[in-house]
Nucleic acid binder design. Structure first.
Lengths: 339, 339
DNA sequence: TTAGGTGCCAAAAGCGCTTTTGGTAGGGCT
DNA sequence: AGCCCTACCAAAAGCGCTTTTGGCACCTAA
């Protein structure tokens, strides 16, 4: 059942039926009702490919997966994608996931040139990310989840990573900690750099040093969290508290602490960044973990809205948001044990 | 730059250029080379929407997200999707993720009717999943990741859940365990039912009972794993070993065991199912966890191939695979402590 | 009365491809 | 010479929609 058949059934022209369905005003309320009713009855729904060809819009948001079994590809992505997709669906848009089986650049170029998506979202930006310049050059609207160094304004949604980790460090300092470790994510990603900056500035502001021995980074897995934390604990000046960049790193950090016969909270304080994924909740741990919290799902939802705004003509420079991060105090942070 | 311009530049007709680009044979090698060269030089790539309208194919595989913040929506999905997308990209296909902001049924119906995808993959099938009949009725090719009850043949890729959990239970029985707990996933999903069957059959075959007190199920989160395991451990006849349906449940199970002052391995044996996600690896735990292992990433890759085969005309009844599951013995499984 | 709206609708021209149709030129065969 | 076959290519007809164009009828204001 297509437009032509439907209009023949109704005894109307294709254009009238099309206008009726799309809510234009040059159609009487009466005619419109008849058309809508018939469309329902015949189970008509427009061919999306024809619609796209005619309008020049694809009605889809693109996002590119890192290729292969990338360790950066973490479970958080699901939650983000879920939010993005939900919110996009509410605006009649789809999300097209594309893999970079050759290079990420090639994928973006393909998406842009073939016009298979109207806009793309870029997640996990690096400190200076060539993809941003590329997208700018390709002249396709885009929103970055995070921030990067770029010579031009661009639309982004980021959380206040620096502020969050500064606050976390300040909390620990306030409790009396002096040696605070940072178990960070991969430093090529800009959020990790921002978090380090937050951690460092809190320490320096308190007149403390921010030693390299207490500042380490790697992928945000349980295993790496364990390894980094174990390394710090066996250093000459072990930390009395650690701040972890993800709930996964924190799981590893907690194991490392326990394996050393120490107790979380009373011996070593732990703060983790929590993106709000449901499979691991910090509040159900023993002891419940203090966290910096920001829902990555909500970020995905908001980004779809921002994309829609951008497509609606909003300027990229007006589409920049930095979300504050909640610091949620639980039992894994206590004053340091008396040395 | 479109086909028309390109062909004008070359002094050829659109059809010839099209045929040259698409590798038909009615074009001389010489002409083809000229065309390809020009396409490269002008950076021409075909408009995907026009291509789709003309061919009636969308070149995309659809997959529907569960709506909202569904707890079934777990991090495993990312890995699956990543595999699917990679493999699809190798075949020039995209993956369209669609959300069900109203109902899942409506989403599938939309995808099918608007012809925005050529095929869909259905993941996380329920024991008797209405979506499968729906897809069958909608007459769109589909591949199920998992199995379900259906009156007609359908394409699927599943792992041998029953066999895996039977083997796991047999291993524990062989070590001398008599009370083996099952920390299962949501029983609405068919893999959970299969795993229970495997667990049960191993116990019965060994002349043991499969008591309800040692058989519990819930979402596969750390929290639920903790709760279920803690429940079993405080029952009248606590298990000496538990089998967990996911690495996340297993994390919770391990916590519950430790919180009770027991040691994993020597006091309580633990086996987990491992889907191979990188953020939590069972082999790096202390002690390393014995697992039933099957890469969900690879499953995603294979399913994209199956979709391609299906679109190429292969019968659904010939597209059915059940993958064996590896049982990887590590240190979390030992003979039970003497009572 | 007449010019100018306005509400309604049909016809037709695109959107950028693929694919069918048909036609020409040359070579081999009878 | 006459025929068919093959290799190559152009023209044109779709694919199913949107949007422009224009036409008709009726109504209002000058």
């Amino acid at each position: 059942m297509n437009l032509k058949e439907l209009s023949r059934h109704l005894g109307l022209s294709q254009s009238t039926v099309s206008r009726a369905l799309n809510g234009y005003r040059d159609v009487s309320a009466d005619t419109r009702e008849r058309v809508l009713e018939a469309a329902r009855r015949f189970g008509y729904s427009p061919n999306v490919n024809a619609h796209r060809l005619a309008t020049g819009q694809s009605g889809a948001i693109g996002i590119v997966f890192p290729s292969g079994n990338d360790p950066l590809l973490d479970p958080l992505f699901t939650d983000f994608l879920s939010g993005l997709t939900n919110s996009a669906a509410r605006r009649q848009m789809d999300v097209l996931v594309s893999a970079s089986f050759d290079s990420a650049e090639a994928s973006y170029r393909r998406l842009a040139q073939r016009r298979s998506v109207d806009a793309v979202v870029l997640s996990g930006p690096l400190v200076a990310d060539p993809r941003v310049s590329l997208l700018d050059k390709l002249d396709i609207p885009y929103v970055v989840h995070g921030r990067t160094r770029a010579p031009h304004p661009y639309a982004f949604l980021d959380i206040d990573n620096e502020g969050a980790f500064r606050q976390a460090a300040e909390l620990l300092i306030g409790l009396g900690h002096r040696r605070i470790g940072l178990v960070n994510g991969d430093l090529r990603q800009s959020f990790a750099v921002d978090r380090e900056a937050g951690w460092r500035s809190a320490l320096l502001a308190a007149g403390l040093v921010a030693p390299d021995a207490l500042n380490d980074s790697d992928v945000m897995t349980d295993e790496a969290g364990y390894r980094l934390t174990a390394g710090m604990l066996s250093s000459e000046t072990p930390p009395t508290a650690v701040i972890c960049s993800s709930i996964f790193s924190a799981m590893g950090a907690c194991r490392a602490i326990r394996d050393r016969g120490l107790a979380i909270g009373s011996d070593i304080s732990v703060i983790a960044h929590d993106d709000g994924i449901s499979s691991i909740r910090p509040e159900t741990h023993n002891p419940p973990l203090t966290t910096t919290f920001s829902s990555i799902h909500k970020a995905g939802e908001r980004i779809a809205e921002m994309v829609a705004d951008l497509l609606g003509g909003k300027a990229a420079s007006a589409s920049q948001e930095v979300w504050p991060v909640d610091l949620i105090f639980r039992d894994s942070t206590r004053p340091p044990a008396r040395a």
